[in-house]
Design a protein around this nucleic acid. Structure first.
Lengths: 149, 149
DNA sequence: AGAATAAGGTCAACCTGGTTGTCTAGTAGG
DNA sequence: CCTACTAGACAACCAGGTTGACCTTATTCT
């Protein structure tokens, strides 16, 4: 019997691969999961590079690299912090928001296909079950989304 | 609402971190998930480095590195292939088998705690649901367990 | 049998996505 | 104002992979 974590990893891979494949057909930059998490985070709140690193669970230097890429590709831009002259807010451009919208639709599609394959109720149970487990382990303050492997 | 893959990744991390923590308390070498997968694979069948690479979904060179480590640490040893003078079988030592046993117990403990937290039936549904999805996506020939992130 | 091709294993160079460590400029609290 | 801290940039490094070349042994095809 496969250990549960193995199933989690394999399923994650399977969904991620499909996501990536379909994305590539559109011909967008080779965005990695971390980029997506940044978009989602930036949509929710204004944030600096340090904030992003914290959220991702990586060092600020690693976060800075990611932000640089996103900047070069036009998904985000930096604007001066109103009160702190050291800091810069990282904000989504229109391209960034469009990407996020597109990605969200794609995820919805993939989840819908999953629901079709294993049943909506089963999928719901998976979702709530995993969420409950995370709640149980981490309590309120969920940790970053650091690299998985 | 969190996308499902995010939940998968976070849960995988959470379980993996706990596994790693408890393992470290025992003071064993810093084995990574890939090493564990190798053990599991070697227990099931005799295999060469190339086979291992295939199973892991990495190049034979990457597999060779892993096997080298495991060899140095005494978890596996190489023995000549009976009919093919090029090839070597990689086999588990007693230390390797002991580790695997220990790890399996640890995983069981973690799953038991998970079951306690979210309910045995929920956990069962998660397990069968994910397995069914993988079956649906990949059919019979499951792919390797390549790095997840 | 002999030649061409494929496969196991090793070596070496390189790439990527992270790390630590150091520095400057700006902030905040006593 | 002085001290301690923080945002961000720069550089060196590391781990875990990759690609490519190679040698040796196997296999296949004529």
């Amino acid at each position: 019997m496969e250990p549960v974590p193995m199933l989690l990893a394999m399923t994650y891979r399977a969904m991620g691969d499909q996501f990536h494949d379909r994305l590539r057909q559109i011909g967008l930059e080779p965005l990695r999961p971390a980029h997506g998490y940044v978009f989602r985070f930036l949509k929710a709140k204004r944030a600096t590079t340090v904030d992003i690193g914290q959220h991702l669970g990586v060092t600020k230097q690693a976060a800075a690299k990611i932000v640089n890429e996103l900047d070069e590709w036009g998904y985000v831009l930096r604007e001066p912090h109103p009160t702190d002259k050291r800091a810069q807010y990282v904000t989504l451009t229109t391209k960034g928001r469009d990407y996020l919208k597109f990605a969200d639709n794609l995820w919805s599609d993939l989840e819908a296909e999953m629901a079709e394959a294993i049943g909506q109720d089963t999928l719901d149970t998976i979702r709530t079950g995993l969420a409950a487990y995370l709640q149980h382990v981490h309590g309120e303050d969920q940790p970053g989304l650091r690299p998985v492997w």
